[in-house]
Design a binder for these strands. Sequence first.
DNA 1: ACCTGAACACCGTTCAAGT
DNA 2: ACCTGAACACCGTTCAAGT
Lengths: 209, 209
Amino acid sequence: MASQRVPRPPRKPADQYHHGDLRRALLQAAVRTIQKNGVESLTLRAVGEELGVSRSALYRHFADKAALLGAVAAEGFRMLRLELLGAWERGGKGQRGFEAMGEAYVRFALQNPWHYRMMFASGFDADASDPALVEDGTNAFQVLVDALVEQQRQGLVRRDDPQALANFIWALVHGIAMLALDGPLQHKGVDVEALTRYAVERLRTGIAV
Amino acid sequence: MASQRVPRPPRKPADQYHHGDLRRALLQAAVRTIQKNGVESLTLRAVGEELGVSRSALYRHFADKAALLGAVAAEGFRMLRLELLGAWERGGKGQRGFEAMGEAYVRFALQNPWHYRMMFASGFDADASDPALVEDGTNAFQVLVDALVEQQRQGLVRRDDPQALANFIWALVHGIAMLALDGPLQHKGVDVEALTRYAVERLRTGIAV
DNA sequence: ACCTGAACACCGTTCAAGT
DNA sequence: ACCTGAACACCGTTCAAGT
């Protein structure tokens, strides 16, 4: 094989480097792509191109692709936490607020389907669970626990272990969300909002004093 | 570039072709690999190699990789259906059988984590939902609906729409399973069996007459 | 410190050719 | 009909080199 020298293509001038907060820009671009076309469609090449940056620039800011996805998921938990807290407070921190929380939870999942799936599918790729992700997830969960403790104080909810109650209720709304996104509810064209209201009503009977 | 003829490597003799039921063999090999190492680890090359077959032989039996994964998921729903039916019947087709069903559901997910995840993550890759998969999922769901109708007949469960009841309850057990596999329950080291029993108890209060 | 571009070791899928 | 092996167009990741 003759070793003919191939001239390198011109290098990008250094003053066109991204500089700025590339980490944040990468994260936002990733969220945008995933919201639009799903996780599968996210390639490091595409996200780099969108920001006018080489495909390996990312490695300065994230260990690998799984770390980027973990950061996207963590961002999702922070968004979810704000939605839940808002519903609880606007609803008056009582029974009505609690029901609004349940509906807000399911609505969040339906309005951000890909983002929501990722928040819980992160165990798929990253079994080395990202501690930041765990923390943001725990913080979102805590809103639910606090709301339950408050309702126990008001005599609205039976005085079982709040953690157990919260696990039980999170499982219910998470289950509705997942079945609506990927399960039989989707194919059967079930009215998810109606199901959510029904579930919240049955739940209330189940956890009342 | 000089076009030097590269001699083809010796072709596999035809009498060593797989023949037999290659479709079934591919399916079983895929299930085995996924159970052991997860979906991510499943490559067509590896499954072909395991069966001593070229990596494109698969395309005679499945449209593409997504179709193979869909078939794996469908197989999972058939397995789950048998587990649920067994628990319901052995438990005496009443309140005890119903609670056994709930516990059997969660146990199935915990014992077949990758397979279970796939059954519901199929929407990830294959948005063109496989009709066979939908049917097997529906059949598994029907066991739950039938059990509820029977309990209504016995006066054990309030006479709401059985479909709505079933959606509600499936969401609950699915949520427990998913949170146990990939969610906060995993990281916090929650006793999933205890949580399941607690959930079933609260559920009973919620759906009683 | 930050980013680049080439190289590496993988993928799924297609397709003409063999038996 | 069924299967093969090469080719194609992608990936994520690594790394020496540039500024």
